Computed example of a mutant assay.
Amino acid sequence: MDEDQILVARLNDLFTRHDPPPAEVVGLAQGLFGLRRLDAELAELTADSAVDGLEVAVRGGDTRLLTFETAELAIEMEVSGTGRTRRVVGQLVPGGPASLEARQPSGPPRQAEADARGRFEFDGLAPEPFSLTWSRPGARPVTTQWTGLE
Rank of each mutant, 00 (worst) to 15 (best):
A71Y: 01
A74R: 13
P21L: 14
R36I: 05
E113W: 00
F120K: 01
G31Q: 13
F122K: 09
P137D: 11
E101M: 13
R136S: 08
L14W: 08
T16Y: 11
T82F: 12
V79H: 06
F130H: 08
R110A: 05
E78C: 00
F33K: 15
G81C: 04
P127Q: 04
A116C: 04
G61L: 09
E24D: 13
L100C: 11
R84Q: 11
L35R: 14
V142R: 13
D62I: 02
G81H: 05
P97K: 04
E101I: 11
D39I: 09
T63R: 06
L35M: 15
P127W: 03
T85L: 09
L32T: 01
R37N: 13
A50E: 15
G90H: 00
Q91H: 00
T70W: 07
A116K: 01
G31L: 12
Q30W: 04
A112L: 03
Q111L: 08
L149F: 03
G34R: 05
F120C: 10
R84Y: 03
V79Q: 11
E78R: 04
T85F: 03
P108W: 00
E78I: 01
V88W: 06
H18S: 07
S106N: 10
A71C: 07
E101S: 12
G34I: 00
S99T: 10
E3G: 00
A40C: 04
P137N: 10
F68W: 11
D123P: 03
V79T: 07
A74H: 02
V88M: 10
E76M: 09
A98L: 02
P108Q: 12
E113P: 09
E44K: 14
M1N: 08
